[in-house]
C-alpha cells in the first residue's frame, strides 16, 4: 500500500525530527518515549484523515497536544486521561454529525448497473447512492457500440492473420491478466492492453494517476478494479460497452463518475472497489 508507506514515512520523519530537535536542545525536556509515541500519533492522524475517522484524528492529536505542549505550560491544567477523554467525546460528536459509513453501490443481492442518469438499473432495490455519483457531464453514450465490435480478438503484437506487426509500429505489449499500477508522487499515465483482463489494482499516494482501458478485453466472468487513493488524483477511462458496479469508501475526498456505462446485462462486468482518502477519483466512460 503506497499511501500507507507514505504515511509511515512521514511518521518516521516526524520521529527523526523530534529526536534531532531534542538532541539540539530545541525540545530538551520531552522524553524519548513521548517523541516515539508522537511519531506513531502522526501516522495515526494521517490514517484517520484518509479514512475520515475522527477518533484516529483527535485521540493522537490530543495525546500530542497534552504530552508535548504541557511541557511548555499550554495544556498544564489538563491531564493526559482528561485530554484523551475530551478527544473521544469530541470525536464521537463529530462522527455522529459528519461520519460516513462504508457505502456499497450495486453490490451484494442488489446487483445491477448504473443508468444513464446515475440511478439504479439492476434487479431488486437500489443501493445507497454515493457521494458525487452520477454528477458528471453527459459524455458519449455507449449504446451504439457492442462488445463484439470492440473485442480484442488477435494476440497483441500480431495481425489478425497471425503475422507479426512490423517493428516500429509502437504496438504495446500485453499487460497480462492482472495489472498492478503503483504511483507515489508525480504523474503516471498507463494504457492497458490485455486480451483477458481479470484484475486492475491502482495504488496512488500523492500523485496524478491516469489509466486508460485502451485495447482491453475483459474476462467473461468480469474484471475487478481496485483503487486505493490517498491524497492524489486517479482518473480511469473505461470503454462504455462494459457494465460497472462500485463499492466505495470515501474519506474527505470525492469520487465522481462521468458518462454512461453499458446497460446490456450480457456485457462483462467491471467490479470496482474504491478506497479514497483525501484525494479525487474520477471514472470516465467513453
Amino acid at each position: 500500500m503506497k499511501a500507507r508507506r507514505i504515511m509511515l514515512g512521514i511518521g518516521l520523519l516526524a520521529l527523526a525530527g523530534g529526536l534531532v530537535g531534542r538532541k539540539m536542545g530545541i525540545i530538551p525536556s520531552i522524553p524519548i518515549s513521548t517523541i516515539i509515541l508522537g511519531g506513531i500519533s502522526v501516522v495515526l492522524i494521517m490514517d484517520g484523515l484518509r479514512h475520515k475517522n475522527f477518533f484516529l484524528i483527535l485521540m493522537p492529536l490530543a495525546f500530542i497536544a497534552q504530552r508535548v505542549y504541557s511541557y511548555w505550560g499550554v495544556f498544564s491544567s489538563i491531564g493526559l486521561v482528561e485530554a484523551l477523554g475530551i478527544a473521544a467525546i469530541a470525536a464521537a460528536g463529530l462522527t455522529v454529525l459528519f461520519g460516513n459509513k462504508k457505502k456499497k453501490i450495486m453490490a451484494g443481492k442488489n446487483r445491477g448497473y448504473i443508468n444513464n442518469n446515475g440511478s439504479w438499473g439492476g434487479n431488486g432495490a437500489p443501493g445507497q447512492p454515493g457521494r458525487g455519483f452520477g454528477g458528471g457531464a453527459g459524455g458519449q453514450g455507449g449504446n451504439g457500440t457492442t462488445l463484439d465490435q470492440n473485442r480484442f480478438v488477435q494476440q497483441p503484437g500480431f495481425t489478425g492473420n497471425g503475422e507479426p506487426i512490423p517493428e516500429g509500429y509502437g504496438y504495446p505489449d500485453d499487460d497480462g491478466d492482472n495489472v498492478v499500477i503503483d504511483n507515489g508522487f508525480g504523474k503516471l499515465t498507463r494504457y492497458l492492453h490485455s486480451s483477458n483482463l481479470k484484475k486492475v489494482k491502482i495504488d496512488n499516494g500523492f500523485g496524478n494517476c491516469i489509466v486508460y482501458y485502451d485495447n482491453v478485453y475483459v474476462d467473461k466472468d468480469g474484471s475487478k478494479l481496485e483503487i486505493d487513493n490517498g491524497f492524489g488524483q486517479v482518473d480511469v477511462y473505461i470503454p462504455p460497452f462494459y457494465r460497472f458496479k462500485m463499492k466505495q469508501d470515501n474519506g474527505f475526498g470525492s469520487i465522481n463518475i462521468f458518462g454512461n456505462c453499458s446497460l446490456d446485462p450480457d456485457a462483462p462486468l467491471i467490479d470496482a472497489d474504491i478506497d479514497n482518502g483525501m484525494g479525487k477519483v474520477n471514472i470516465y466512460f467513453g
Partner: peptide, 16 residues
C-alpha cells in the same frame, strides 16, 4: 506513455 505515442481523438485512442 508506456514507450508508445498515444493519439487521442474524441472517441478513440490510436498509436503512432
Amino acid at each position: 506513455a508506456d514507450n508508445f505515442l498515444a493519439v487521442h481523438t474524441a472517441k478513440d485512442i490510436f498509436s503512432a
